[in-house]
């Protein structure tokens, strides 16, 4: 049971929901940038939501599926095709052994997620299969995927649902059911993406102009953005007076402002601590949106309260619960 990497794509790595509990030792969280899409992909094939998946960025890989597989693709649209035929996202897809799954042109978003039934049979390091690129641990040999890699797959009991898809497949190389997870969460192309933020307790340290401009002016996601952080350019944000900062913990979505005034939004591979002043914190539910915004795009920050952010968070979790139940229902039955 394995998948062979024919071409690796731009930055393709194994990620799960991240490595928690070790930040106090300086070990970063890592994990999928768009955790929402990662969870959906797993649920669609009947995995635990936090199983390891393949995360691909801007330009996807080409993969040889060496076994009959139930897989699901979510997140950004990188034009996935099996043996040259477009394959839909947001659904479980049964694929015949020997097929080639190739990702092509980026149509929307920035990152795509591929989950396979049973997950990947790779060892957990500190409780996670996520690739920690800089320390060279986790994932597949602690690095991004390369040509020729053979990814061993985990075992999972076969679903009756998948067997019914086998019957439906006939002579074609893949089959899928007539239901899917809505793509309402997938980013629609836009001139400017809205990112909701909660001002940080250090917000008041910024100059009145900077505080105003932070919400009024758009910022561009620069090409120096990566899994560690989104580096923005736009108006230069300044403190009212210079400040000696002492390093303290940072979080996913923390917007910190180095002395050059260009904000950085900290993402999955952020360090555990930072010494720059923090202007705001991206609402948890908008992190996945942000993960699908590609360099060159413009974003605009919108202020929300802590209470609103918490409600949005709870509503998103409730949504995932619902999706989980309906998918479980579908997978427990037969597709025909």
């Amino acid at each position: 049971m394995s998948i062979k990497v024919l071409t690796p794509g731009l930055l393709t790595s194994i990620q799960d929901l991240g490595r928690y509990g070790y930040q106090k030792y300086g070990v970063i969280v890592s994990g999928g940038m768009d955790a929402y899409s990662l969870r959906l992909a797993n649920l669609l094939v009947g995995n635990e939501e936090g199983e390891a998946v393949i995360e691909m960025t801007l330009m996807g890989p080409s993969l040889l599926l060496e076994e009959d597989l139930l897989l699901a693709i979510t997140g950004g649209d990188l034009s996935p095709a099996i043996n040259g035929q477009p394959v839909p996202q947001g659904r479980p897809v049964l694929v015949r052994k020997g097929s080639v799954l190739k990702f092509g042109a980026l149509k929307s978003g920035c990152r795509s997620y591929l989950a396979v039934r049973g997950g990947f049979d790779i060892p957990e390091v500190m409780g996670s299969k996520s690739t920690y690129l800089r320390a060279g641990i986790g994932g597949y040999q602690g690095r991004a995927l390369l040509q020729g890699d053979i990814l061993p797959l985990g075992l999972a009991c076969p679903l009756p649902f998948a067997e019914s898809l086998v019957r439906a497949m006939g002579s074609s190389s893949f089959a899928f059911p007539p239901w899917y997870v809505g793509r309402s969460y997938v980013l629609q192309k836009s001139q400017e993406y809205r990112v909701r933020v909660i001002p940080n307790s250090q917000f008041s340290l910024f100059s009145p102009d900077s505080r105003k401009q932070f919400f009024q002016e758009p910022f561009q996601v620069t090409t120096q953005s990566d899994r560690m952080g989104y580096r923005l350019s736009g108006v230069s944000l300044q403190l009212t007076e210079p400040l000696e900062m002492i390093s303290e913990a940072v979080a996913l979505g923390t917007i910190q402002v180095p002395p050059d005034g260009n904000p950085i939004i900290l993402m999955a591979d952020r360090q555990t601590v930072g010494g720059y002043p923090k202007i705001a914190q991206v609402a948890g539910v908008d992190i996945s949106t942000l993960a699908q915004i590609k360099p060159g795009s413009k974003i605009r920050f919108e202020e929300i309260s802590l209470g609103e952010a918490e409600e949005l968070y709870a509503a998103r979790e409730a949504d995932i619960q619902r999706i989980n139940i309906t998918i479980q229902l579908q997978l427990a039955g037969t597709a025909t």
Partner: peptide, 18 residues
């Protein structure tokens, strides 16, 4: 609580609000 990070003069606790 998910985990905490201690720094020079502060502690940050990460949690799941739900």
């Amino acid at each position: 609580m998910i985990e905490y990070v201690s720094a020079f003069s502060s502690v940050t606790i990460f949690y799941d609000p739900v």
